[in-house]
Design a protein around this nucleic acid. Structure first.
Lengths: 238, 238
DNA sequence: GGCACACTTCGGCGGGCGCCGAAGTGTTCG
DNA sequence: CGAACACTTCGGCGCCCGCCGAAGTGTGCC
């Protein structure tokens, strides 16, 4: 080692460099809703010209953070997978302590922020107070073990089975993973199980998306289901 | 939302920007050994002038990724905590797929790389084939559950107790966490338990550091202990 | 006290990157 | 077919950032 840099350093810097731009960061955060956005939607969201955003998308796709899907004159992009979502989440969670002051400044300037804190999706699973309530209920009922790590118990596996929520255990993705919540600073349920639960909650009408953002609202039917299946009191969701 | 960027985007970009420089990235990777380095050591390691590195350190400290400790005319820096190590690890793990080709090019150019793949520390816990062997042995003996997440079992807690390795469960840090291994692409044991085990392994002479890098070598005594306590065959460590 | 050493500050240089608007390509729709 | 639209490519501009060497500050050693 004559003083030259590590081979990995260049790769690490390049990957971080993809995120190290405010416009690209805004795109990645927007795409955390797990859906596909068009280039113009992202350009409007980020407040830059279409031509500028086109170049950004090119770099993000080339760097493997996004995948694209062309349909006619539209270019749809989405996060390349759960690993990318996890990466962005983790970076964002690390940022929060510093940004908290700013958030306090804006106070509850927007009702949108309040709705996000209340309940939202985090790529493909539930987050916010709703996500925390679910994770806590799982833990309290002995379905999820959080004291010595983060794993479903056998009772937890049975719960998914009896609830009729199938878990695909064939892939490489972990069955369950903890994901640090931005707003609550506590872990919620991610991984295959978290995604399956979220999908079921949306499909079964337990909660519905608010507007075009990531925020979700629990329906009356959802309150009944969460109370019956997990013992979550409706009050805890408000 | 008139088209202006999210408040979080600026923070995310700023954090990523700290890592998005090859010199700073090389420093962070070097500091993954969990020890404190002086500014000149890092400058030599990264191959830049002392003045250049001084500025980099200033930014990393200001950004909260490093903490510094002045001793006389030396400036010692280290990673600010396990969260930072985790962040860098995760980014680096994401990079690997792309860098693999390059690694294959250099082949086993350096024996140092082979030693690192064999066994090393990853901030404060064990990694490499050694780390994987330990995690696998834990799992095979029913001490660690990896199929439904990643958590110690009650038997696992007892194992630490009888081995005389204390676990501090008072802090905020999770007792156990999975950490994706760069070289093996499989999870190994991190968190409080991983750190305690690594510390014990070094203190008890189960393994020793090779040179000044992160690589470690299992001693004859270590082979006996790992065989007796975890049923790890010495052959699996070579 | 004087010298060696670790680190910091400063000015200056060069390169890279993000931004835009204008022009070009391909798609959809009337 | 022509107009509207989504996206891309290209020049050009300006700024920021990483680099260095030289000079300055503080510490430790003889």
């Amino acid at each position: 080692m004559t003083g030259r840099k590590d081979a990995g350093a260049a790769g690490l810097a390049a990957l971080a460099g993809l995120i190290a731009d405010e416009t690209r960061a805004a795109c990645l955060l927007a795409l955390l809703d797990g859906r596909a956005w068009t280039a113009s939607e992202l350009a409007r969201h980020a407040g830059v010209a279409a031509s500028t955003l086109s170049e950004h998308l090119g770099r993000l796709v080339a760097g493997g953070l996004l995948t694209e899907e062309r349909q006619g004159r539209h270019r749809y992009v989405r996060l390349a997978g759960p690993q990318v979502a996890q990466l962005v989440e983790e970076l964002a969670a690390q940022v929060e302590p510093g940004v908290r002051a700013a958030r306090r400044r804006t106070l509850r300037a927007s009702g949108a922020a309040a709705a996000m804190a209340h309940g939202r999706t985090c790529y493909d699973h539930l987050a916010g107070r709703l996500g925390i309530a679910v994770a806590d209920a799982f833990t309290a009922r002995g379905l999820l073990r959080q004291d010595t790590g983060f794993a479903l118990t056998d009772a937890g596996l049975r719960w998914f089975d009896t609830a009729g929520i199938g878990l695909d255990r064939t892939g490489r993705r972990p069955l369950v993973r903890s994901c640090l919540d931005w707003t609550e600073r506590r872990p919620h349920l991610a991984g295959v199980a978290g995604a399956a639960l979220c999908r079921h909650a949306l499909d079964a009408g337990w909660c519905v998306r608010i507007g075009s953002e990531r925020a979700v609202r629990v329906t009356a039917e959802g309150e009944r289901a969460l109370s019956a299946l997990l013992g979550i009191e409706a009050a805890a969701l408000r």
